[in-house]
Write a protein that binds this DNA or RNA. Structure first.
Lengths: 348, 348
DNA sequence: TCGATCTTATAAACCGATTGATCTGTCAAG
DNA sequence: CTTGACAGATCAATCGGTTTATAAGATCGA
């Protein structure tokens, strides 16, 4: 039976005072190497681990931070979590993952509870919690440090790390245009993610610059999940004038678009080019593999955690995105470029 | 500035003793309705939340449990987490998600640290941590209650919830045989998951019963991830006698198999049937959608948490699986059934 | 009316660490 | 031979709850 050992046991075994043990534990000055060694040996022998509960009560750091998220793309969350976790692991800090529902009327209260009950030292917010008012108010009221990953609003409030969603969407749209596509549909992201608007904006900007018209019928609402991409594509295919390319603003929706296209008997990517966004693992799993925007999700999370841990409260870091070409996007065949017949069908 | 309020503030405001407040908080007897009401009002007004740290120190439950996992399939983990989380949420218990690496030589130590530092009341183990010796020893030594999801060994040690992996694999294999397939390849799971052996066993049993030979060249090593499925399929396709169906022992690997087949120019499912296992969200995202075994992952996790929370230390529950037919498996065309020519190729 | 059972108060000990105040030695520089 | 700077001991308070012991008023049945 391994009875829990406490700081008294350690001090007794090492033959030093409790205060000295505490000094060793917290890296305080005025401890000689030999004393430190004695104490460390005693700690090892007793397998002593200071109780966080007691340290928290005594008012020092809890060495715990929380990651709060609400996301419907497991691959995305997996990367966010890994990034935070890795940095925490290096720093010897525990990470508590806390899923929430931003639509729940008492998220604010839940977050307040989390903080005052667990005494976490800080918080990492992932989109869309980054722009959830009740949560932001709760955190501000508590006066606890927090950083945000890809926030869409209140940029002056906290440190943040993000990418240029508008530019990335612009890049992808331009890429499609350069390949000859003129009828490019777009699937929007979940309305409570600010990135959704940014991506739509980038798409429109690229269209404008190329002198292409913006046609609202080629815009579909989405929710960052497979099903909404599927539905969006079905809608596009029912249009008298079909798009030759679909740009879905994340990979899950792009997979949905592809599935609907496959189901309709289209030959991908020749009959329809499909572009994604995020470059999650999923992008390589579907067929054809997705041409997509690589979002540095892991690094975003790692960097955010870094900022929190080092107490940099008001810095903003933009990380670089990258257009990844795979096989889901093809140049528009010549015969389709010429005609603009409304009754034109992808294949006979 | 919302100064933290403590139990003293509450007792003062409510005009009762600290002890009485404590009674209300812990649902102890001997509190009249009117007194209880007064205390509850005071709690609400002060937005008082008892500090877990203090309660832990005082020796009562921490109302926290941990979920320890090490898995390479985000969709699987997502479901496990959701199941645990939902049950915890209902019970007002906090869930700490803790990823580990079972191959790390000091997992045991990490787990011991987790328990003695956070004072969690119990632990849910997900495969393959369920069969990680250092972790099991650490937990036993600590004397902390824990339950396991799909353990492969030491069944008498703890409560567990699981499905019949062998029977499920048998079912799927039999399904393929019934559709006329005779050359059925199999992609094994990660060697540190006990379920991998079970599934292989079920596959062989079905083959035996049907009087079909077991050919080791049609067995590939896998690791439950996309890439290993991809590699396995490439290997199968290089064989002089190609399989007509591949049964991959999870969905991620099945997606890999499909990708390799697509890349080789095969027409799915006609040239090659592909079956998966798990029925994660991914199964519907790939093309063609996977015929797979539905593993009740969410319910498994929920039930495990239930057992832990209600203190049922030695019960075992088997949950039912189900064969889900989608479009990745097709009957073997007649002309292929007849011949068994080693040089036979899927398409000309 | 007496005793039993509720209901609540008061005071103090305790959980395991941190921290501040106070005090005693060492040892080396000036 | 002082004088500091450093190393460590001792004691007690503190964080925010739980819990035990003791006491006492209220309520109720016999």
């Amino acid at each position: 039976m391994s009875q829990r050992s406490n700081i008294r046991d350690v001090s007794a075994l090492a033959g030093v005072s409790i205060k000295t043990v505490s000094r060793v534990l917290n890296d305080h000055p005025y401890v000689s190497k030999t004393t430190r060694k004695k104490v460390e040996d005693a700690i090892k022998e007793l397998d002593f681990r200071p109780s966080v509960a007691a340290r928290i009560l005594a008012g020092i750091n809890s060495s715990q931070i929380a990651l709060i998220y609400d996301n419907h793309s497991p691959y995305y969350i997996d990367q966010i979590q890994s990034g935070c976790w890795q940095r925490c692991h290096e720093a010897g800090v525990r990470l508590l993952g806390q899923p929430v529902d931003v639509a729940d009327p008492d998220v604010g209260d839940q977050v307040r509870g989390l903080v005052s009950e667990t005494h976490v030292d800080g918080i990492v917010l992932s989109s869309p919690v980054t722009d959830c008012d009740p949560v932001l108010r709760a955190l501000e009221g508590l006066g606890i440090p927090f950083v945000r990953i890809s926030p869409g609003t209140n940029h002056a409030m906290t440190s943040s790390v993000f990418m240029d969603d508008a530019q990335a969407a612009d890049d992808m749209t331009t890429h499609l245009i350069n390949l000859g596509h003129r009828r490019i549909a777009f699937v929007k992201g979940h309305p409570n993610h600010m990135a959704s608007d940014e991506r739509l904006f980038g798409y429109r900007r690229a269209l404008d610059r190329a002198g292409l018209p913006f046609d609202p019928r080629w815009i579909a609402d989405g929710a960052f999940d497979f099903d909404s991409g599927f539905l969006a594509c079905q809608m596009f295919l029912a249009l008298p004038e079909r798009p030759t390319a679909v740009f879905a603003s994340n990979d899950d929706m792009a997979a949905g678009v592809q599935a609907a296209a496959h189901q309709a008997g289209l030959d991908l990517p020749n009959d329809l080019s499909v572009a994604g966004f995020d470059d999650t693992t999923l992008a390589r799993m579907v067929w054809p593999p997705l041409t997509t925007i690589r979002q540095p999700t892991f690094e975003l999370a790692r960097t955010a955690t870094e900022l929190l841990l080092t107490g940099q409260t008001l810095v903003h870091r933009r990380l670089q995105h990258e257009l990844i070409e795979r096989d889901s996007v093809a140049p528009l065949p010549a015969h389709k470029t010429a005609t603009n017949n409304p009754l034109d069908r992808p294949s006979t």
